[in-house]
């Protein structure tokens, strides 16, 4: 024992290991300890991150513009067609909304048209590792943002907040392995669980698990959040089915989902703080 203590070569790594395990277990179990360390560091670095991320986005935007110049005319024509189609859809939706409201009144249901109370935020930093997908946004507790709030863009679901500081929040993206969102197929209403990048889904894609064996999956089916779990409100677009397969034990099916949001170009997001009555 004495000889072991005299030999300092073992002592330093052993001490390092003990201290490391202690730090990990303390910060893992006690949120407030981690927060005390987190807030000053984030508050110091976030102004610089905000400026640099704006520079980064403008560079990326300009780089993306170059190939687009060649397809501009074609794209313009397609967009015009899309606008015409969407205007038609809009008219149809207004009609359906009115019809739905009338029918609900007839049936005695409570009016259920809500809008989200949104807080716009800018993405100021991204997780540098290749394993996790976490972003930092420039709004936090001061703006009414709390842990476990859904984050979206106009395209669809981005993720949810996992931690907040006074002026910033950490958002785990739906492509992160640790993320899990209850979802359903918009067309067939079959329920499942959408998880982040896990084999066999290719990088950047999602996997929808626990789909019933008899679920009628078609490529291109829209996947929306089901609202179960309480974090993500119902009806937010997650993505579309890119591929459908049976699990190896064949009791369930799974689908590879292409996310609706382009996470490479994620610049501005909205945090859903709650629901408010729609202005009809």
């Amino acid at each position: 024992m004495r000889r072991l203590l005299k030999n300092r070569r073992w002592l330093i790594p052993a001490l390092f290991l003990i201290i490391s395990i202690t730090i990990v277990s303390i910060t893992l179990k006690k949120d407030y300890v981690f927060k005390k360390l987190e807030v000053p560091v984030i508050n110091t670095l976030s102004p610089a991150q905000k400026i640099l991320s704006r520079v980064g986005f403008s560079i990326k935007e300009n780089l993306d513009m170059i190939p687009q110049l060649f397809y501009m005319k074609e794209e313009n024509e397609n967009l015009k067609k899309q606008v015409a189609e969407l205007l038609q859809y809009k008219q149809n939706i207004i009609e359906y909304q009115r019809e739905n409201a009338d029918l609900r009144t007839l049936l005695g249901f409570k009016e259920r048209s809500f809008q989200y109370d949104l807080e716009a935020a800018e993405v100021i930093a991204r997780d540098p590792s290749n394993w996790f997908n976490v972003i930092l946004i420039d709004k936090g507790e001061k703006h009414g943002i709390k842990k476990d709030m859904a984050v979206i863009t106009d395209e669809g679901l981005v993720g949810y907040t996992i931690s907040t500081a006074s002026n910033t929040s950490k958002v785990v993206l739906i492509t992160d392995e640790r993320s899990s969102v209850s979802a359903m197929l918009q067309r067939t209403r079959d329920n499942g669980m959408v998880k982040g990048t896990i084999d066999p889904a290719p990088s950047g894609y999602l996997k929808m698990e626990f789909l019933p064996q008899d679920a009628n999956l078609v490529k291109g089916d829209i996947v929306i959040s089901s609202g179960l779990g309480g974090i993500i409100p119902k009806g937010i677009i997650i993505g579309e089915v890119a591929e459908a397969n049976k699990e190896s034990y064949e009791l369930m099916q799974y689908a590879i989902i292409k996310p609706a949001v382009d996470f490479m170009k994620l610049e501005r997001v909205f945090v859903i703080k709650g629901e408010k009555e729609a202005d009809l």
Partner: peptide, 13 residues
């Protein structure tokens, strides 16, 4: 710094 900025606890990175 990485753990503080993006992690859920201190120690991993």
């Amino acid at each position: 710094l990485e753990d503080i900025l993006f992690g859920r606890f201190l120690g991993l990175s």
